[in-house]
Amino acid sequence: MVASTTSLGRSGLHDWVIQRITAVVLAVYVVYLSAFVFSADSLTFAAWQGLFGQTWFKIFSLISIAALSFHAWIGMWVISTDYIKPTGIRLVFQALLILSCFAFIIWGAQILWSV
């Protein structure tokens, strides 16, 4: 079988492992951020800036944005190969998917480091 060219990983195992690792990262990030939101007395600008001003949280956030992008890439790639049968439409869909995943990571980095 010809190797899949637009998938994130080069093998099924590769994609499967990345999918699970990124899921764990996302779970930890969501739990941490929820805990922050629900435990804060009042969500003021200062509280948000205090959280996002720290370098470690910027890195954690950027890794989570990357995890979300990779997770979406793998998941949407699977959906496209299941349901989009015409090759041309599938190629366009996959190209837009991959470009937007990278765009979100770069945009996210820019927002995070502007705080």
């Binding site: 079988m1 190797a3 899949s4 998938s7 093998s11 099924g12 195992l13 994609d15 699977v78």
Partner: peptide
């Protein structure tokens, strides 16, 4: 033989 994106890993 099963390590491609479809043969085994298409199981959801």
């Amino acid at each position: 033989d099963l390590d491609d994106a479809y043969s085994l890993f298409r199981c959801r």
